[in-house]
């Protein structure tokens, strides 16, 4: 029996509280044996100043809910959390929080990888880079990211 609020999905401008999100996951069930987390942040280098994240309201939330539900069933999770920020984020700022709670570590770790790999290429978010000096460029989709997402198609 899953706890109320076993799945938590959000798209937001404001920062997330990773400690609070982890605490929520770890107290969902007394059957929980492990919580796995991934936090993605804006990587600097090459003069990058910020990323501006755009999304497709309505579709984004729907895709994230579907993805979370798929992970819950596939990895027999006790809970999972997906939070993705939008708007302008400077180097070092957190972008995405993925958390999974399961009875055993293997499921929690695998679910976390599954969720972030699928989120990157399957949910309608786009990143625009801003460089020192004012130049901008849209981030191009990477073949490696598509491969990482589709690798889960054939993984038991």
């Amino acid at each position: 029996m899953l706890a109320d609020g076993a799945v938590h999905v959000a798209v937001q401008v404001v920062p997330f509280d990773a400690a609070a999100e982890m605490a929520r996951l770890s107290t969902l069930s007394t059957l929980a044996g492990g919580v796995s987390l991934f936090v993605g942040q804006v990587r600097g280098g090459g003069g990058l100043v910020s990323l501006t994240l755009e999304h497709y309201p309505g579709m984004t939330e729907k895709i994230m809910q579907v993805l979370a539900a798929e992970a819950m069933e596939r990895f027999e999770l006790l809970g999972c959390t997906l939070i993705h920020r939008v708007g302008r984020l400077e180097v070092g700022q957190p972008i995405v929080f993925v958390g999974a709670c399961a009875a055993h570590r293997a499921a929690a770790l695998a679910a976390t990888g599954f969720l972030i790999d699928r989120l990157k290429t399957g949910a309608p978010f786009w990143k625009k880079e801003e460089y020192a000096g004012g130049g901008t460029a849209w981030v191009q989709a990477r073949v490696e990211d598509d491969a990482a997402a589709s690798a889960w198609d054939n993984t038991p």
Partner: peptide
């Protein structure tokens, strides 16, 4: 209908 480039989230 929404038309867009490949997604680059995460």
């Amino acid at each position: 209908v929404a038309v867009f480039p490949p997604m680059t989230g995460g």
